[in-house]
């Protein structure tokens, strides 16, 4: 077999390992669904009337505005689970076993990334289902839905690799569960929950230039037909950049960390 074939076989094996973890411990997935659903309900029913009025619609208009941001919030929260499970591997003996076997080096990490993406998509489907139940009315065509799936895949891929790197550099499982938390704040500090133009200048500028805003704007445009402009290109650029840097960072730290 060639090296590439080995890499694929080993990655598939490690992916299967992560799927077993998912199946054996569904409580983590439930938690990763629970938090965004609570935020969705909280924002729609507590703040939705007032904020929706400000947007010139009402509660229903706010469900539509909010859902793309909540989807991203779901992804950002779910990758904390990735960091935790990577850190668990790193702090237990199993990583030494993998590293002393003649297997493709990155397959352990690839397995984590693929497993987490499955988990993220389960969570996304659940959250989207709740949003539809409480009045989210997307206007997307099948093709646009496909694009939505694509953007969410690219985003999940990027953030998962980032979380893998955070999980490797964390010196304990506790640290790994805390460091990705700032990601969950980013949808708030952008156009996820309210439009950025009501924010103070410094915050507005940050909100407009941080990676989550173009991703949210792209999702919103695809789902609801609002203007996308160059957001899609910027969003994909961010995803590609974050994926690449995180991959290189994660791989280097994996080789080094496990060697000390």
């Amino acid at each position: 077999m060639t090296t590439l074939a080995h890499t694929l076989t080993d990655s598939r094996t490690m992916f299967r390992r992560q799927l077993l973890h998912l199946r054996r411990y569904p409580s983590l997935t439930v938690m990763l669904i629970g938090l965004p659903v609570i935020f969705l309900l909280l924002f729609v029913y507590v703040f939705g009337g007032a904020v929706g009025a400000g947007l010139g619609g009402g509660r229903d208009a706010y469900v539509d505005y909010l859902t793309p941001g909540i989807l991203l919030f779901t992804v950002a929260g779910a990758v904390a689970g990735t960091a935790i499970s990577v850190a668990m591997d790193m702090t237990e003996g199993i990583v030494d076993r993998f590293r002393s076997m003649a297997i493709a080096r990155a397959s352990v990490l690839t397995g984590h990334v693929l497993g987490s993406m499955v988990q993220i998509f389960i969570a996304l489907f659940a959250v989207l289902g709740v949003a539809l139940l409480i009045g989210f009315r997307p206007t997307a065509t099948p093709l646009e839905w496909l694009a939505v799936a694509g953007v969410l895949t690219a985003t999940s891929f990027a953030l998962t690799w980032f979380a893998v790197a955070l999980g490797i550099v964390a010196d304990s499982v506790e640290t790994a569960s805390n460091t990705p938390m700032f990601l969950s704040l980013l949808p708030f500090l952008g156009s996820g929950f309210v439009p950025t133009d009501t924010m103070p200048t410094a915050l507005r500028l940050f909100g407009e230039y941080q990676p989550f805003t173009p991703i949210i704007e792209t999702l919103r445009g695809l789902l609801l037909g609002t203007g996308i402009g160059n957001s899609a290109a910027i969003a994909l650029g961010w995803c590609a950049g974050i994926s690449l840097l995180s991959y290189v960072w994660a791989k280097r730290k994996y080789n080094k960390r496990a060697a000390s």
Binding site: T9, T13, R16, L20, E92, G93, F98, M101, I103
Partner: peptide
């Protein structure tokens, strides 16, 4: 090694299967 290098979340058989697949 000194510390059991096993996947504690998997069963005994799944751990061994994992090794068989990686080999």
């Amino acid at each position: 090694g000194q510390f059991a290098a096993v996947d504690k979340l998997l069963t005994v058989r799944e751990n061994l299967r994992l090794m068989a697949d990686l080999n």
